[in-house]
Design a protein around this nucleic acid. Structure first.
Length: 309
DNA sequence: CGCATTTGACCGGCGC
DNA sequence: GCGCCGGTCAAATGCG
């Protein structure tokens, strides 16, 4: 359900500017970045496409997914785009460290399409809005900032990050909402081709049990499942997402998603789950150093209390 | 010294 | 063609 107030261009227009982020919604916690299946035809993007975008037929070359909460109060906003990923280019770029010259050529080619009507293909993108004072949310991967740009209609610059792993071409953009500076909009582009570097730290893995996900279940159903069933999948870890202990906003999960029981996790739904219940990953709580840095003291206390069983 | 960040320049896409 | 804008590059700089 996408309110018409989304102004047609979608709440979050990944393909253009930041003009219309954030409207009245505010987003808590995270929104989950579950990129493990971006290349899978039945990926979360497909779910989104099927369950969310019906009112807005995607543009021919750039399909955009807008998750607009079903309830006016709801805050979860995620957006993604699916395109035939230019994974080939990225993989080229990755493995050929000895071919730096070729690498540059490849990069140039990426920027310069051979045909005019053949636009540069992009990786699938996925955007989150997170209420946080921290710009660069720690999702467990290491990012290197490679640019910063002032964006039109926003007083806040947009930062560009690239995954530091040589075998990974994932990028992300981080910017603050112009209307609510406490909201950070993070847009991921691409799929990590490597495990999360922070996995060994016993961090929280945002990889819910599918069943728990889709039965409208709460986070408590899966926050115990810190070890994902598929260790090969790279799991995002949001160490410093918990920057806002504010009330969790209940977003009415798309009912279609709930009935769509044999699909991959829907990020929108997933985000909703985070909002259903404060986010107390026990393993993450072990990482006191991080948590202390990222959590308001009260919240951290509460977590400690709960975690020290 | 190695790595990350900053920042101005550059490039391509797009609208007029 | 021109200008605007988003995105990227790469040299300079900072930091541990």
């Amino acid at each position: 359900m996408i309110p018409e107030s989304s102004s047609g261009s979608g709440f979050f227009d990944l393909s253009s500017t930041t003009d219309h982020h954030h409207k009245t919604n505010s987003f808590r916690f995270v929104d989950m970045l579950s990129v493990q299946d971006f290349t899978n035809p039945s990926s979360i993007f497909d779910d989104l496409l099927h369950t969310i975008t019906a009112p807005f037929p995607p543009p021919p070359e750039y399909s955009e997914v807008v998750n607009t909460p079903a309830t006016p109060n709801s805050s979860s906003v995620s957006s993604s785009s699916t395109e035939a990923a230019a994974a080939n280019d990225d993989h080229k770029r990755i493995d050929e460290e000895e071919e730096e010259q070729d690498q540059e050529k490849t990069r140039k080619l990426q920027l310069k399409p051979k045909k005019k009507n053949q636009k540069r293909q992009r990786e699938p993108r996925f955007a989150f809005m997170t209420k946080s004072e921290i710009d660069n949310l720690d999702d467990g991967y290491r990012w290197r900032k490679y640019g910063q740009k002032a964006v039109k209609n926003s007083p806040f610059p947009r930062s560009y990050y690239r995954c530091t792993s040589t075998a990974c071409g994932v990028k992300k953009r981080v910017e603050r909402s112009c209307e609510d500076p406490t909201i950070v909009v993070t847009t991921y582009e691409g799929t990590h081709a490597h495990p999360c570097p922070l996995t060994p730290r016993g961090s929280f893995a945002v990889m819910p049990e599918r069943g728990a996900m889709l039965d409208g279940g709460m986070l408590h159903r899966y926050h115990h499942q810190l070890t994902p069933p598929q260790p090969m999948q790279h799991q995002p870890y949001f160490h410093n997402l918990l920057t806002s202990p504010l009330s969790l906003i209940t977003t009415t999960a798309n009912t279609n998603a709930n009935t769509n029981t044999n699909t991959n996790p829907n990020p929108a739904l997933f985000a909703n789950l985070f909002q259903e219940r404060p986010f107390y990953p026990s393993a993450a709580a072990r990482d006191d150093g991080l948590l202390q840095d990222m959590l308001p003291s009260q919240m951290f206390k509460g977590q400690k209390g709960e975690e020290e069983e």
